[in-house]
Every structure is written in structure tokens, then in C-alpha cells.
Write a protein that binds this DNA or RNA. Structure first.
Length: 490
RNA sequence: GGCGCUAUCGUCUAGGGGACUAGGACGGGGCCCUCUCAAGGCCCAAACACGGGUUCGAAUCCCGUUAGCGCUACCA
């Protein structure tokens, strides 16, 4: 009955309030709105709901922009600031007063609080008793003349309010369970439900997609649309995102701000892919998707009703997948700032040997789950001197004399290698191991420590190739020297 | 308390009356590959919340119970 007709171009919006950072739940809501708009060739708008002046900050607004930009969720048209539409909200409230869909209420917050407490004791749901709606015109005028402050309340009509939700299908509320809610504060500023409806009408929004914590606001908003004589949008209520304990996702579950993931070396495409699967499935076994694929596959049919739990382990795995599948040319600009920030190199140095750098990234990304992992692994290929991980020393240089002997032999073998190529390096090192009658690992592992300082690295020949002859030979010399010095010191 | 929403492995999910011995993925365990670690491949453990219906037949449709979650402001 209120499905979007295919002929109509969908217009959706993401409407966060700037009272904190962009939360992963908000990002997921934004993503679904964006995917729907992209898939069905519609518009995706952004509205900042800053009517609560006490809690809204510019810093939060900036964080929302940054988060959305990082994720690549670009919006159409200019950002709408709800606070700029105060006059229209007020006018709409007045209009409802004139058509007597709403009425003035002179009850003070203190009186209301008192009555609420009384009903709490009696274990009854508190509902405004409409006493001000029963004021005679003369009484109302008298209090107005006296300058008594008042709020504007919407009068809930008789009956039932229902809608056909895009994800839940039919949802209905008996109107008797709805309270005559305030739409205009005593300082003449609008309350959420009024502002939202007024703005959504003005912006021509025809699909309202938001978290299902808004389900109970929906009947009130529908009543407002009707009283304002506006056409109803379609509503879609998305499931919530919870932490591993099943409770609403919050700070104590770890990182909940999109910015945290950005700074910990996540790829936006992985974040989007992961978030998309929280509450939506393309059907079948499909999981890993690029952004264009998500747009292509997105359909409201795959929307889930059940709350999803945010599992950081799966996000990490997914990031690893995206790290491996993202084209190098796209990956490089996301990794380079981190490399530079870590002090490993600068732009000029990287540009000077871009081919080498890209190959190195390609080598390291296989065993990385985050950009930070890549940076951590990259050190030995940039630094002049390295530190030796005590664990690596204990494990692979256990016997110092043997380590020195094997490293020196390795050094000689490498120096006499003709072409510095994988094949010749492999031949040289394997025959060295053979001539000494030891397993190849007995040569490779001590060498790995000498080159990287670690027990773990890409394949030894790849490391040798990435470091080049000069640095490799220097590393071996440094290592033997370090081992000797260590002995002398004792 | 009232109202609403939800219910498939620990987690994300596939499934939409017979194709179900319930599939995939993360995580866990094991094996293979192997110069280490990843990646990759193979294998294992692991779920239809419960009770009633409807039907020849229910994970799937209906009702109830239970549990979880959300809302219940002159917050958004």
C-alpha cells in the first residue's frame, strides 16, 4: 500500500545527530541508505540533526563528515542542517494548532514529573491526561494573556496506526497506546518527531530507512504526516547492532567509532563489506564483495529482521581478504601515509623506487590483516639498522659459534652469487646447506634473523630479493659482528 | 509495568512446505603444503528456543510460552 512505486526516483537520507563520533551502527544505516540509492538510481542526502543545542558540537559534525568520506559514502546535494529550519518547524506546529490537530499545554515539567512518579507507583503506563485539551477557549486565552509558558501537544486521534514496513511488513499500533506527545517546546523550538517529519517532507524523502529503535516513533510520525496533509514515505527499520554480549553496542565493547577503525589500519571497503553483512545478505554463500558488487547485489529482500552481533574477529579476517584483493595501485595510497607516519620513508624516497615499493607491498600484504601489520613488517626493508627480537635470537641463534659460522658461510655464498635472482640465490643457499650436511632451514632461519631480526617473514629468497645484494650482505656482517660483540661482553 | 520488535552452529548467515543427513563463512581443533609465518587446500566438532496446532509432510505457515532487545522526556 505504501511501497515505493518503481517509477518514483527514491530519495533517502541519513540523519545523524552530532552528539558524538560516527558510530558503526550509524555507518551501517548510512551504508544501507546509500546502497539503496545507488542500486535504484536514487538520491542519498545527509541531514545533521542539531536541534539539541546543548549536546550538538561542531567537532561531532566534522567527525561524521570525515567518517562518511573515509568510507566513501558520498551524499547528493548540500548538507541540510536541521537547526536552519526552525522557522518552518514552528510554522508547521502552528498550522497543526490552527487545524486543531494540536493544542497548547500549560502543565509545567515539574507537574508532569510529579504525575509520572505517581503513575509509576501505581504500575500504570504514564499518559498525559489531556487536561489542557479540556481548557475552554477563554481559559486558554486568560493563561496566554498572563504570559504562562506552554508547549504544543499533538492530539492522538482514535483508531489504529499501521504501515507496511520494508523489512518487517505490517506493523500496527493501537492509538490508545500513544501519548499526546509534545511537538514544540515552551521556548518554541521543535521536538524531534516534528522536526524529522517537517524536514523529510521538505526534502522530498520517500524512503525512510533507519534503526529499528525508531519503530515506536513511526506511528507518531505517520500521524504527523497525515495531519500536515503530506504523502507518506515508505519506512524501513533496520535491526540493531549489538556487542558480543548481546547488549547494544557501546564503548565497553571496544572500538565503536568508525574513526577508530580508520586509524587502526582498516580498509574502508572491508569495513563496508563487513557492515553490509550485518543485517543483510545477498543470498547464497556470497560474502566477499567489492563496493560496486555490493551496489549491484543490494536488495531490500535480503534485509534481516534480527539484531546482529558485531564480531571484530570476522572484521579482521575480512580486512585481510580485502588487503589481498585490492589492486596495488589502490592499496598503495592507503598504506603510504602510515609508512611515512612510522618514519620509514618519505614521499620522495618512495617515488624514487616505486616499482620496488609496490612489489614489497605485494609481498607483505599476504600475511597482514591490517595496514598496521604491513607497516610493522616493512621496517627491515627501509631501516639501516635493525633490532634482533630476543625470541628470534634464542630460537635460531641458539648456539652463537654455530650461528657465526653459518652466517659467514652464507655471506660468502651470497657474495659469490652471480645474478641476484631468486633462482641463483636458491641454488646457492640450498647447495650450501647440502655441502654442510644440514637441512635448508638450518641455513634459512639464522639468515632470516640476520636480515629481518624476526622469526617470521616472507620467503627467504623474496626477502633477499627485496633487500638487494648490498643491504643483505651488510645485514649478515652486522649480525656476525653483533654476535661476536655479545660474546666479548660476557 | 505497558507497548512494540525478534528468535537456524559461540558469531555472521543460506534456506521461504518434500531437494535437509540443515549449506557457507568467521572463530576453534586436526591434517596437507612448507625455509618461518601467513595465504591456500582438505577434514572434524558445532544450530532450527520450547509447546501446541495446520498438513500426507514443518527449520519453513498459525497460535501460545519463554528469552533477548527497543521505546515508554519540553533527548535524538
Amino acid at each position: 500500500m505504501n511501497e515505493l512505486s518503481p517509477a518514483k526516483r527514491p530519495r533517502l537520507r541519513f540523519a545523524p545527530s552530532p552528539t558524538g563520533y560516527l558510530h558503526v551502527g550509524g555507518a551501517r544505516t548510512a551504508l544501507f541508505n546509500w546502497l539503496y540509492a545507488k542500486h535504484f538510481n536514487g538520491d542519498f542526502l545527509l541531514r545533521i540533526e542539531d536541534t539539541d543545542k546543548a549536546r550538538s558540537t561542531d567537532e561531532s559534525t566534522r567527525a561524521i563528515f570525515e567518517g562518511l568520506e573515509w568510507l566513501g559514502l558520498d551524499w547528493d546535494e548540500d548538507v541540510v542542517y536541521q537547526g536552519a529550519n526552525l522557522e518552518r518547524h514552528r510554522a508547521d506546529a502552528l498550522k497543526l494548532l490552527e487545524t486543531s490537530a494540536a493544542y497548547r499545554c500549560f502543565c509545567t515539567p515539574e507537574e508532569l514529573e510529579e504525575r509520572r512518579r505517581a503513575s509509576a507507583i501505581g504500575k500504570e503506563a504514564f499518559k498525559y491526561d489531556r487536561r489542557c485539551d479540556r481548557l475552554t477557549p477563554a481559559e486558554t486565552q486568560q493563561r496566554l494573556d498572563r504570559g504562562d509558558p506552554f508547549v504544543v501537544r499533538f492530539r492522538i486521534p482514535e483508531g489504529e496506526t499501521e504501515w507496511n514496513d520494508l523489512v518487517h511488513e505490517r506493523i500496527a499500533f493501537p492509538n490508545k497506546d500513544l501519548d499526546d506527545f509534545v511537538i514544540l517546546r515552551s521556548n518554541a523550538t521543535p521536538i524531534y518527531n516534528l522536526a524529522v517529519v517537517s524536514d523529510d517532507i521538505a526534502m522530498g524523502i520517500n524512503l525512510v530507512m533507519r534503526g529499528d529503535d525508531h519503530i515506536s516513533n513511526t506511528p507518531k510520525q505517520i500521524l504527523l504526516y497525515r495531519a500536515l496533509g503530506a504523502e507518506l514515505p515508505t519506512f524501513a527499520h533496520l535491526p540493531m547492532i549489538h556487542g558480543m554480549d548481546g547488549k547494544k553496542l557501546s564503548k565497553r565493547h571496544g572500538a565503536t567509532a568508525v574513526g577508530d577503525y580508520q586509524h587502526h589500519g582498516l580498509l574502508p571497503s572491508a569495513m563496508l563489506n563487513f557492515l553490509a553483512l550485518l543485517g543483510w545478505s545477498p543470498g547464497g554463500d556470497r560474502e566477499i564483495m567489492t563496493v560496486p558488487e555490493m551496489i549491484e547485489l543490494f536488495s531490500p529482500d535480503g534485509l534481516q529482521k534480527k539484531a546482529a552481533i558485531f564480531d571484530p574477529k570476522k572484521l579482521e579476517w575480512m580486512n585481510g581478504q580485502h588487503l589481498s584483493m585490492t589492486p596495488l595501485a589502490e592499496l598503495e595510497p592507503r598504506v603510504t601515509p602510515a609508512i611515512i607516519a612510522a618514519g620509514l620513508a618519505d614521499h620522495t624516497a618512495l617515488d624514487a623506487r616505486r616499482e620496488w615499493y609496490l612489489e614489497l607491498l605485494d609481498l607483505l600484504r599476504v600475511r597482514a590483516r591490517t595496514i598496521d601489520d604491513i607497516v610493522r613488517q616493512a621496517g627491515p626493508y627501509f631501516l639501516q639498522t635493525i633490532e634482533y627480537d630476543p625470541e628470534a635470537v634464542a630460537k635460531n641463534w641458539k648456539n652463537r659459534d654455530e650461528a657465526i659460522v653459518i652466517l659467514e658461510a652464507t655471506g660468502h655464498a651470497l657474495e659469490s652469487v652471480g645474478e641476484w635472482q631468486t633462482e641463483s640465490l636458491e641454488t646457492a643457499l640450498r647447495s650450501l646447506a647440502e655441502s654442510r650436511g644440514v637441512a635448508a632451514g638450518k641455513v634459512f632461519q639464522p639468515l632470516r634473523v640476520a636480515l629481518t631480526g624476526l622469526t617470521v617473514s616472507p620467503g627467504i629468497f623474496e626477502v633477499l630479493m627485496a633487500m638487494g645484494r648490498e643491504l643483505s650482505v651488510k645485514r649478515i656482517a652486522d649480525a656476525t659482528q653483533w654476535l661476536r660483540k655479545d660474546i666479548v661482553d660476557e
